[in-house]
Design a protein around this nucleic acid. Structure first.
Lengths: 152, 152
DNA sequence: AGAGTAAGCGCAACTGGTTGCAATTACGAT
DNA sequence: ATCGTAATTGCAACCAGTTGCGCTTACTCT
């Protein structure tokens, strides 16, 4: 505790309460190295306080997400993951074949966001995007497969 | 029928079968004016053939999506929507306050996609993106609210 | 410090979507 | 036209996530 004080203030200022459960959920995300699914957060909190309900986890994640303290991303694996929003914004390139995840610098999208704002007046939330596609390796594999298919 | 023959061929060529259920799901999407949710597709098909199972709808949607015949988009309303992939690619700007949907020309993202491909070798699927954010009107509203909040 | 109140909690019921399985059926090969 | 096979179907069980509700509790105000 101690390093969470700003977060507590933000919660209070927005009319929310800081409960023990919320604190545990929050710290488990804060101190996780990367992305966590809701179930993972649930597991981690349960080791400290076994009586938490999964619905509390989901409700808290929703609150934190609305306050932009955490970012939700669909990494393609079916379940959404959550991660503490850090200073440097970044995005993910996710291969839909091998599921490999690569980071993408924010600059790639910042410019598009700016242009959309300029042209259409729409302020795009481009904090944390998951872009699906095919990684270089899988592209090669697929073209080779296609070549074999055409040959036979 | 008749206008679906190319689609049927594509299915066959990729080792799939064309079943009556599949045909109905396909045409309901093909002839729908815009986006349909899975439940909507289910309802439409049921009017013709009441015995379809919802799981068949989901499974077929997955197949069609994998073949890029339809595009899945999370329009924010909680449930994903599907639409027939038309010639001109486009994207959607969805306001997270008023849920208004605006179309965005593909050119905005095409360039980013090209750059990602060039720099990182990753071929991004940018066929049909849903970009969340705040529309111009809601931005104005929010800044006014903030001004009122600061004043009192 | 104490009281009132609205937010939050855990439970249980529910919903939307997925999956395993046995029966069926479309399709390529004969 | 018929056969064999693999894909597909419908059912039912299942799972992840959501919601309604009565009880509890953090926070505000005095």
């Amino acid at each position: 505790m101690g390093c969470e004080s700003e977060t507590v203030d933000l919660l209070r200022e927005t009319g929310h309460k800081m409960t023990p459960q919320r604190m545990m959920i929050l710290t488990s995300l804060r101190h996780a190295s990367g992305h966590l699914t809701a179930a993972e957060v649930f597991e981690r909190v349960k080791t400290v306080y076994p009586y938490v309900d999964i619905s509390t986890v989901y409700r808290t994640l929703t609150v934190l997400k609305d306050l932009h303290l955490i970012a939700e991303t669909d990494m393609g694996g079916g379940d959404a993951t959550f991660e503490w929003v850090v200073a440097e914004r970044h995005h993910h390139l996710i291969c839909r074949k091998c599921s490999q995840v690569t980071q993408l610098d924010h600059r790639y999208l910042a410019e598009v966001g700016a242009r959309i704002g300029r042209d259409l007046g729409f302020r795009a939330d481009l904090d944390h995007f998951a872009i699906f596609g095919l990684c270089a390796a899988c592209q090669r594999e697929l073209t080779e497969e296609a070549a074999r298919g055409a040959a036979h």
